[in-house]
Design a binder for these strands. Structure first.
Length: 466
RNA sequence: GAGGGUAUAGCUCAGUAGGUUAGAGCGACAGUUUGUGGUUCUGUAGGUCGUGGGUUCGAGACCCAUUACUCUCCCCA
């Protein structure tokens, strides 16, 4: 038999890791709920057609498809062979696969809203914390199974939503202790730039090129733009666009002079200013704006964004974005229900975990691997029976207990407690049984107390004090 | 999709220019004479060196293939 192994890009999570991950989940969830979002869960798999053509060509390739059952049915051999030919030709075929694993949480959410819009109260605010799967090549900070935590609002156009989402980002990351930059831009600004520089149909070429700025440098970007058919004047405009710097206010000023009277561009600028200036008297707003950073090169891959877009970058650590989102004005129309605008954000928990691990940001108490407070030594049958009764009383009082599984020498029982990180041990042997008490020992201090069987509350006192 | 790296004991790794019975540390288990651990000491178990070929008198080492993992680029959380 070959050694068991995990599928590429997946992981097991041991106790300490699960606890730390839950700490992140719970922090995010608590903040979502403070802002009035309600939970939603959708299936791990969706119909393939629900997911196809939503994430761009690259995205489609990364969707995990599920093979249909019953392909070995001898009666259908001919049909299945024909169907498979179409797969070999690079197309999907329902005869071979008609379901796929969830690729993100936004599209399933849009599907849900499209299916239930008659019943939902709008604006509808939901959060969703579930794994998604991508057939990507794993590497640092990239897994094939990972969690997203999304919060979306649909059925409301007000920019107040964007403000709240930025505040959620700011709050969560300050609670987790992660120093972040909340990058913000607007698709409308990119669109305006495209209109000025060669027409709306160049939007994608331009965004793809400028998105590479920090990787390949300004000269290569210009080169690429020329190849895409932009003239010198247009390239120069983009260059001056890319050279915008300074603080947020300065950036906007410079942008205004480039975009001039472009109508869409103005809208984009207004929207960003709205978010920056909202609620100016408030302290929270200051911390929000400290983290907010206008980045006109921010483009975001997913096709469906139409307005404000966000991306989160952790400072002081080499890691891809740990969150992102934006406004999509008509996502549900993909599923036949038009006119439901929405905006949402996503947290990448697995990367957040990696960042926190690297920067050692997890609080100590989160890492403790056991919830057992007291290990009762096993010192004989009658002794154990009495110990068990006491343990049940303690458990009723919310004190976690374990009885060592075998009657064996002290050495082993001590080591077990030590390894599991159990801080107290209780010794109830023949002598104690006779006297009606047991010894409670604190392993880190070495202190030992004798506890009478009828004064269990003392144990609660001792073990719960810091 | 493109390009690197790695694969030897449960874990982390050594293994020199190919040469007998493949090593260390940690861990595990047992003992150090039976009711107070974390130290020490002693001992034991555990590997057909990822898999399949090839070169050679001889391969853990060299060559080819294959698989897995890992990293970088593309793209993304």
């Amino acid at each position: 038999m070959s050694k068991p192994s995990l599928p590429q890009g997946t992981r097991d999570f041991s106790a300490a890791v699960v606890r730390k991950r839950n700490y992140i989940f719970n922090t995010i969830k608590a903040v979502f709920e403070l802002y009035g979002f309600e939970p939603l869960e959708t299936p791990a798999m969706e119909n393939l057609e629900t997911l196809m053509d939503k994430y761009g060509d690259e995205g489609d390739k990364l969707i995990f498809k599920i093979l249909n059952n019953g392909l070995d049915n001898p009666d259908k051999q001919q049909k299945i062979k024909e169907d498979f030919e179409t797969i070999l030709a690079g197309k999907n075929n329902k005869g071979i696969t008609e379901r796929a694993l969830r690729y993100d949480l936004t599209i399933p959410f849009a599907r849900y809203v499209a299916m239930n819009h008659g019943q939902l109260t709008f604006p509808f605010k939901r959060y969703q914390i579930q794994p998604v799967w991508r057939a990507d090549r794993p590497q640092r900070g990239r897994y094939r199974e990972f969690y997203q935590c999304d919060a979306d609002i649909v059925g409301s156009k007000t920019l107040l939503n964007e403000v709240e989402l930025v505040d959620i980002y700011a709050t969560v990351f300050s609670k987790l202790g992660i120093d972040v930059e909340i990058k913000i831009n607007s698709r409308k600004i990119l669109q305006a730039l495209a209109e000025i520089c060669g027409g709306a149909d160049k939007l994608i070429d331009i965004t793809v090129a400028i998105d590479k700025l920090d990787k390949i440098g300004i000269d290569k970007v210009k080169e690429e733009l020329q190849q895409k058919g932009l003239n010198a004047e247009q390239v120069a405009a983009i260059e001056s666009y890319l050279q915008i710097d300074g603080n947020n206010v300065a950036k906007l000023d410079k942008l205004k002079s480039i975009l001039k009277d472009n109508e869409i561009g103005k809208q984009g600028i207004d929207e960003i200013e709205f978010i920056l200036n909202y609620n100016t008297q408030n302290e929270k707003q200051e911390t929000r704006n400290e983290k907010l950073c206008i980045d006109f090169t921010l483009a975001r891959g997913l096709n469906y964004y139409t307005g404000i877009i966000f991306e989160i970058k952790a400072s002081n650590v080499q890691m891809g974005s740990i969150g992102g989102g934006g406004r999509y004005d008509d996502l549900t129309s993909l599923f036949g229900v038009p006119n439901i605008p929405g905006v949402g954000i996503s947290f990448g928990v697995d990367r957040i975990y990696d960042v926190m691990e690297e920067l050692k940001l997890f609080p100590k108490e989160v890492e403790s691997t056991t919830t057992t407070k007291i290990l009762f030594f096993n010192l004989g049958e009658a002794e154990s029976k009495k110990a068990y009764q006491i343990m049940q009383q303690l458990r009723d009082k919310n004190i976690g207990c374990e009885l060592y599984h075998d009657q064996t020498k002290f050495d082993k029982q001590f080591k077990y407690a030590e390894k599991k990180g159990i801080n107290y041990i209780a010794i109830l042997g023949s002598k104690e049984l006779e006297e009606g008490n047991f010894n409670l020992k604190n392993l880190s201090t070495g202190n030992q107390n004798s506890i009478a069987f009828d004064s269990i509350d003392e144990v609660v006192e001792i073990t719960t004090q810091k």
